[in-house]
Amino acid sequence: MHKYILKRILMLIPVIFGVSLLVFCIMNVASGDVTAVMGAEELDAQQLYELKESLGLNDPLLVRYVKYMWNLITKGDLGTGYISKEPVMSLFLNRFPNTLKLALGSTLVCVILSIPLGIYSAVHHGSIADNVAMVGALLGLSIPNFWLGLVLIVIFALRLGWLPSEGAVGFKSIILPAITIGTGFMASMTRVTRSSMLDVIRSDYLRTARAKGAPERQVIYKHALKNALIPIITSIGETFATALGGAVVTEAVFSWPGVGRLIIDSIRSRDTMVVVGCIIMKTIVISVILLIVDILYAFVDPRIKSHYARARKAKIDE
């Protein structure tokens, strides 16, 4: 078991370095000369050189990357924003709790809607209700988030006045953006739930459970769901990771002060340092979440767990 976890953690390292190298190079090359937006026209050559030197821009890109990662690993330092002049790490950490809250909220909305819907569809496989549910879930996918967000704002904030339309103050403010993002992920999670439930729903052990006298609810929610859980957990993990990574549009619609908006604002002001730092941090967070999902498998399915236990035992025996 520990070996399994360790293996997964080790696999994280190349992923993080690969992604960060990519992001670092692309962003730095693509955003061109940052000194241009810092009023460089008015400087003479000597002053420009000094400015670049102070920003560390005179080194080759790879050297800058190594220095950057070294600072990140040893000091948790993501550099200082070119424009905002604030440490990127503290900018990120300021915004990250909001993004996390919204991602949790939208994943929760998605789970609450999708899993019962998927189970219902599987149990009533082929019925009209099944088809309606599947089409309904697809609707969630095909409605663009910005549009759904605006409609929700119009109805619940402007017309009814029940919920705030912007900001991140209090529990109420998270409801509309969470619904907007959560319903977008519904299609995939409902489908995954339905198909993995369908895989187990005709299995012999459910018949055994019924023959014991287990009520249908228990048969479905205990025996079937537990066996269908691995793909569902994967889907939940991916939904959460995606919600963390890509709620940019929805954050903008609801003026939600999250990392997504920080990135957008920084791209606008061409503050490459902030953009790179935020994306790298997100990558790390998302990788860790996917790692946790992988580890959860082993707890859900004893066969995976004992597979690794056995592998370890075999090693010891050698």
């Binding site: 012999d204 052990y205 018949r207």
Partner: peptide, 16 residues
């Protein structure tokens, strides 16, 4: 009334 099913390999719940 109880029943024992044909195939013991599949009639037990693998995750309990």
């Amino acid at each position: 009334i109880s029943m024992i099913f044909q195939d013991p390999m599949t009639s037990l719940n693998p995750v309990e």
